[in-house]
Design a protein around this nucleic acid. Structure first.
Lengths: 227, 227
DNA sequence: CCTAGCAATTGATATGGATCAATTGTGTTT
DNA sequence: AAACACAATTGATCCATATCAATTGCTAGG
């Protein structure tokens, strides 16, 4: 499918593309493609050779590792207006390190790695923005590592909810979970049953309020003490 | 201390510097400094403003997160000829996300972020190499996340040993642990006692041989089945 | 060479969360 | 609107690993 102005307009404001000149941007879109995924559809699997990276126009995608026991560990949930797999093009082995599956009907823009690399060679601003984006990604991964290293599951959940709250601006004590609860459980490496019980206990203590996917932190001060 | 040719020679071959011209390299070294740390000495703490990144000439350094309960979680052990904290200069908040401590007598070269960024702006090859280096770092973090998400501690250890073995080239079934056992335990987010018992059990089963820090994988095929 | 301090091991116990199982809730499709 | 598939919750049980405690081993510094 051709890439009309509607789609390219969502791409343009993102830091990975905003420093490009009109010509450079057009050049990049020459070989860009729209990819439509229905809910549950897989985009790529870990180990697949990577020739493109992606930008989410609408919908939601999960990135996960396939474990040897057949289960999956969700690494990250990607949302509208976010790029993903853009770090892969710089690996020596140009293969995806994770699997991707749409968790809702999703529209992506697929961009050729080589085209973007060509722009980096001539536009240093784009390189700096990309480095900034990847640096932010690394921070997220380090945060995730810290959460996974906590011994108590309750602490994991509390700390995770705090990162969600911190991401919101302005700081709001009510927010929605970014995905279904069993996916949150997978990100925290706990069982869905355990997550359900932890939510129950935190509610009983009057620390949070859970209404479906909506969480309210009732007592932020006391809440922190659990993390 | 001034940066003599001996030190700069260790820097030169690394991918982050090799594409630089002689002039560019000299320019970078203008403000570079040698930092000597004795064992146990701290270099920086998470939250500190970052103006420099580092390259290890000799010795060993641990990067860790300080947890709210006062304990620490080791994220990575860095060795001779490796750079670290070079992703921090591209964060919006230019603060270190981790703490650093020398775990042996260590000599570092400290390089000013701004000087390196200046080179990126004019030398696209250096940008591409840096992107490659950061991409490799992200892969390591994803591998670490996968290990931390495993439920069984034995599986964590087995999978960790496999990554160590895979890093060696040529593939050798004997290798040394990169740090003291209690630090390995911290990286895997298990207790030292548990690690000790797991090593004992794996030895009893005839799968590995442990001699101090030296590990031998006796039965690689059967070994894999435990991961 | 001896000693102090830290690392590693070994043992005993308690418990948090995984697992198994069943029920209830929710939303999507026809 | 009914029915189905999947998500979430709730309950009961069990086991792996944290924790506490003590001993042994190692290594670096005086």
């Amino acid at each position: 499918m051709a890439l009309d102005t509607l789609y390219s307009a969502t791409l343009r404001p993102h830091r990975m593309f905003s420093p490009l000149s009109v010509n450079e941007f057009d050049q990049l879109l020459q070989h860009a493609k729209i990819v439509s995924l229905s809910k549950g559809e897989h985009l790529f699997t870990q180990g697949d050779p990577a020739h493109n990276f992606y930008f989410i126009v609408s919908g939601q995608v999960k990135l996960f590792r396939l474990l040897k026991d057949g289960s999956e560990k969700i690494i990250q949930i990607m949302n509208k207006d976010e790029p993903f797999a853009h770090a892969v093009m710089f690996k020596k082995q140009k293969t995806f390190p994770v699997c991707t599956q749409a968790i809702a009907a999703t529209e992506l823009i697929s961009i050729r790695n080589q085209d973007y690399i060509d722009l980096i060679k001539t536009n240093s601003d784009i390189a700096l923005e990309l480095l900034g984006s990847m640096s932010a990604n690394m921070n997220n991964l380090i945060q995730e590592i810290e959460i996974l290293s906590l011994k108590s599951s309750t602490t994991k959940v509390v700390q995770y909810l705090q990162t969600l709250m911190a991401d919101k601006s302005p700081l709001n004590s009510t927010f929605a979970l970014p995905a279904a609860k069993h996916m949150i459980a997978s990100m925290l490496a706990i069982q869905p049953e355990t997550l359900s019980r932890i939510f129950y206990r935190l509610q009983k203590k009057g620390l949070i309020q859970v209404d479906g996917a909506d969480i309210t932190i009732l007592s932020p001060e006391e809440f922190k003490l659990h993390s």
